[in-house]
Amino acid sequence: MRTVISRWAAVSPFGIGAGSLAAGVRERRGGVLPVDRERWPAPVRRAGLVPGFDIREVLGAKGTRTMDRISALAAATTAELLHGTDGARLPGVGSDAGLVLGVNNGSAQSIADFTRDSLVKERPYFVNPAHFPNTVMNCAAAQCGIRYQLRGPNVTVAGGRSSALLALNYARRLVGAGRADAVLCGAAEEFSVTRAWLERHAATNPPVLGEGCAMLLVEPGDRAGRYGRAELAEVLAVRFGVFDTDPAQALADCVRGALDAADVAPADLWAVVAAHDPELAVAGPDLPPVRLSVTELVGDTQAAAGGIGLAALLALAADDPAAAGRVALVSTVDRDGTVGCVLLRLGA
């Protein structure tokens, strides 16, 4: 079965919506800016924050009283993906649609705040029960399911910077197995003081952090056309690998596997988008005319990196008539041991 991507949406350091990400990528404008240290008392000076992302301003008061930032980023992106410019829900993406979201730890900030209360309050159970759900990794996906009435498979996956590609493959298999006709898939990461401290301790050279969420609509090829959606890209192959000490070799093997599976020659690639862990400094294949590093653009968005990479690729392709019908690659590398890549044939 041909699985295609027929729509994408993003909330990124360039702003809310696909248009702002597309403009930022087109201009190769940096999405990293100085951090307001009063709002964010984090050990960083600069970060790729979603500008003006106030949860209640973006999503309204309903259902957001205790919502945390990662859930809000995912919800705002889901809303963008599901609704056209006229505000109407996309045809053919009803309550039976699935949702697969890649995360890292969900919200490290929510987990830390909740645990801290148990340690410092008069009694160890004087925690705020309304915030308990935010400490569970599938909270964002569950919130999106409830908010947008998605009753199909609802899945949360984690694989560091490979999370979005793992989510895409999960979506592809759900469609292939007939478990859903249409699946929203992507990945989300929030910026937070706790995440910044964790990265500062964990990384040898703490990267500039970014945040955001990108989601794709995945469905069978013939279905997109039935609902009047263009095929933005066909998913040709998704491959993963795990490494101990040599991420470059693991990525090379992974990419070769994908190219072989799709019967594509390296020279045929139109673009390579890297969503790599900056800690490891692994370059992607140095072949095609168009190359892009997501991290250089918007900072290290960790779980969301691959999703923002996919969105950036689709934005670039939409701008360039030479991309039509060509093959492009998005690759991921993560210090926790995973590499991944997806090969897409871009729509005509």
Partner: peptide, 28 residues
Amino acid sequence: RVNAGRMSSLVARELALTDVEALTISTA
């Protein structure tokens, strides 16, 4: 140690699997 993805990548690394899709499923 805290990134959730490690729950699966550690298993793959312990077994020295390389041609492997390792994912952690965080659906509570």
